[in-house]
């Protein structure tokens, strides 16, 4: 490498280009739209039945909030597409949060959590809402004390994380493990991709062609989870600066994470500020140039593609085929005592 001449590297560049051309065929592989069988989990928090059981109790238990009124499920409710149907999250004492509650479906497959991606793991994410004053407003030391006073939880933690005790760490790990089980189920679209031509309507097929063609929606809503995890400013005109709050990087100004479109029919209202009520409206904002096309740092992907009303309806028909059967789930009614 020491005397790698300019010519040498240009040659390497040629080789790279050649490899890229041959892999172009793989790009057309339709399997990229199917959910992988396995859910990724970190080495130090592998998924076990004991951890799922514990995590599920914690997820639905209102005793994780300061005044025992709010649980994770309040804002990420399985009955409401694992979101809450509100424009913005509502925590204890009716306090309104700054952003729309994102669904947790398939969040296990995402590298960054929260709308602004500030958490790099589900374990890190899980403790955020518990402490946020507009959500569960609970002090973590206080929570550890509270759970240690519940015999049933002491036993469940011992089974799930032997010898580790009830700590901030094991609470986060257990909740994250349960969240990893919340994955999209087979939808009509998946049956279509697997070869069942009758699984979706002709209109939905046209909609899918527009989604990946004229609409270029898959520039961001890419792969089985219909998101590539990218951050963009859609020009909604609100005052939330998004990812820019983490670091003043120009391309992060007003940028938010691309959400999944799995079960998107269940998770209205839409966008980080919950300002959009229907999928037609959402498709028009994304596909036809944003609400405020002159916004600073507007994503270059937000441009007017000239989608007609009819085309937008076809795309929405396609989006509806991403709704799977409700996940099989027993919601706990009795909690550890």
């Amino acid at each position: 490498m020491k005397y790698f001449s300019r010519f040498g590297t240009i040659l390497t560049g040629g080789v790279v280009a050649a490899i890229l051309t041959t892999s172009a065929v793989a790009k057309e592989d339709m399997n990229k739209w199917l959910r992988p069988e396995n859910v990724p989990a970190p080495k130090d928090n592998q998924i076990t039945p004991e951890r799922i059981t514990l995590g599920k109790f914690l997820y639905f238990d209102t005793r994780l909030s300061r005044d025992n009124t709010v649980s994770c499920a309040t804002c990420h409710n399985p009955e409401l597409g694992w979101s809450d149907g509100q424009p913005k999250a509502i925590g204890i004492e009716g306090r309104q949060g700054p952003r729309n509650s994102p669904t947790i479906i398939n969040t296990a497959y995402q590298r960054h959590q929260f709308w602004d991606g500030r958490a790099k793991s589900l374990e890190e994410q899980a403790l955020g809402p518990i402490q946020a004053d507009v959500e569960m407003d609970m002090d973590l030391d206080e929570l550890v004390k509270r759970l240690n006073g519940i015999k049933g939880y002491k036993e469940l933690f011992e089974k799930a994380y032997p010898g580790e005790g009830i700590t901030k760490d094991t609470i986060a790990k257990a909740i994250a493990t349960f969240e990893r089980t919340v994955v999209s189920t087979e939808a009509p679209f998946d049956r279509y991709i697997k070869g069942d031509e009758n699984a979706i309507s002709e209109n939905a097929k046209k909609g899918f062609a527009l989604f990946t063609g004229k609409g270029k929606c898959n520039n961001c809503h890419d792969g089985f989870n219909f998101t590539d995890g990218s951050f963009h400013n859609l020009g909604l005109g609100d005052s939330d600066i998004g990812r820019y709050k983490l670091k003043k990087r120009a391309s992060w100004f007003h940028a938010f994470k691309t959400p999944t479109l799995r079960d998107v029919t269940k998770t209205a209202p839409y966008f980080h500020d919950g300002s959009i009520k229907t999928l037609e409206e959402a498709t028009a904002v994304c596909g036809n140039g944003g609400r405020f096309p002159n916004s600073k740092n507007l994503s270059p992907l937000i441009e007017d593609r000239g989608l007609t009303q009819e085309e937008i309806r076809l795309i929405v028909d396609f989006l509806a085929t991403l709704e799977g059967e409700p996940m099989k789930l027993e919601i706990p009614t009795k909690f550890p005592q």
């Binding site: 005397y3 590297t9 790279v16 890229l20």
Partner: peptide
Amino acid sequence: SILATVSYSADHIVVQKDKTFHPNYIKAK
């Protein structure tokens, strides 16, 4: 000019394609 580049610096081309850096590891000076 080739000698000059050889002894002082090299160019490494990184192609951004399909939302991936190609290559994704480079040894440089």
